[in-house]
Design a protein around this nucleic acid. Sequence first.
DNA 1: ATGGTAGTAGAACTA
Length: 261
Amino acid sequence: MSRFKIATYNVNSIRSRLPIVIPWLKENRPDVLCMQETKVDDARFPVAEFAAAGYHVVFKGEKQYNGVAVASLKKPQDVFYGLADDGPADVARLIRADFPGVSVINAYVPQGRDRDALQFIYKLEWFKRLRHYLERSLTPDKPVIWLGDLNVAPENIDVHDPKRLLGHVCFMPEVREAFAAVKSWGFEDIFRRHHPGEAGQYTFFDYRVPGAVDKGVGWRIDHILATAPLAKRSLDCRIDLRPRLMERPSDHTVLMAEFDI
DNA sequence: ATGGTAGTAGAACTA
């Protein structure tokens, strides 16, 4: 049995965030760091900087938007890109990396833009497609981790103003139901397992709210979920606010978990 | 407070 440390971080441009990401990796040495919104095409992904820190990295991105990456101390056994159905592949939103004893699904769920936008319909569909992906390629009795910027705050305690935000695309009842339908495949929210009922624990703070971290004006929209065999072996899950308080931060911060596997 | 900032861009879009 060994300790497995995994983290998720929406970097909002990997090239802009290297001064935060690389020192964080060196200090925390997670086995796996999953990133979203890398905002870079594959030819320009900063592979060398990760290698210099001792990390292998797999990624799929595009020039300006989206992009996902998985950095790991050990090279994954297998890597799969996108939802792999007959819809848009969205390779820059989903990357699955299989390691010995655990499959890791790193997702950047579509934000949805606006409740009346086509993008919102697409977001709801995306959760359904992910559920189908799980059903046909994995089983919940095996160790699976689903993590990333899932663009949904599951409960009232996961947002700073549940009344006002009820119509927001990351908090609307329809979105929470869509998320719950994926979760019900066989996932447990690992952060909640270790912090039941704890309000005010956020992973995202809008740039436009001055002093958002200090004021507690945030959202818990980044998540680490795991199937039962892993959940019961989880040791800890916590939000590291320090990256959000540094110079030139992402608007998200790091969420990390540890397992005995 | 339906404002505000930051990213990639090199104007306007996305979050």
